[in-house]
């Protein structure tokens, strides 16, 4: 799989570290913390995820891709959008 890094351009996925779902928000209180830490949707289709370009620009990016086809649908710096 090749990932479109907004700084470096298209790179092999091996250069990146995967974190996961970018849409999760840390809850304010302990309620919901277990779900935040452990519960994941297993999406089939477009999904936005955090990837860290460890072997490139050393930046966190938010990548939207189709999990069924690995098609890249866009990538932005994580600090510019979803947290």
């Amino acid at each position: 799989m090749r990932i479109d890094c907004p700084y470096c351009g298209e790179r092999d996925a091996q250069e990146f570290v995967y974190r996961g779902d970018a849409s999760l928000m840390r809850p304010e209180s302990e309620d919901g913390m277990a779900d935040y830490v452990y519960l994941r949707d297993n999406l089939a289709g477009p999904m936005t995820e955090h990837w860290y370009h460890a072997q490139g620009c050393r930046t966190w990016i938010a990548v939207t891709r189709d999990t069924t086809t690995h098609a890249m649908l866009g990538a932005i710096f994580a600090r510019d959008g979803v947290r």
């Binding site: 470096c8 790179r11 091996q14 250069e15 072997q55 490139g56 620009c57």
Partner: peptide, 10 residues
């Protein structure tokens, strides 16, 4: 310019 890996070396 590019930052990448060659033979697993940054």
């Amino acid at each position: 310019a590019a930052t990448t890996v060659i033979a697993h070396i940054g």
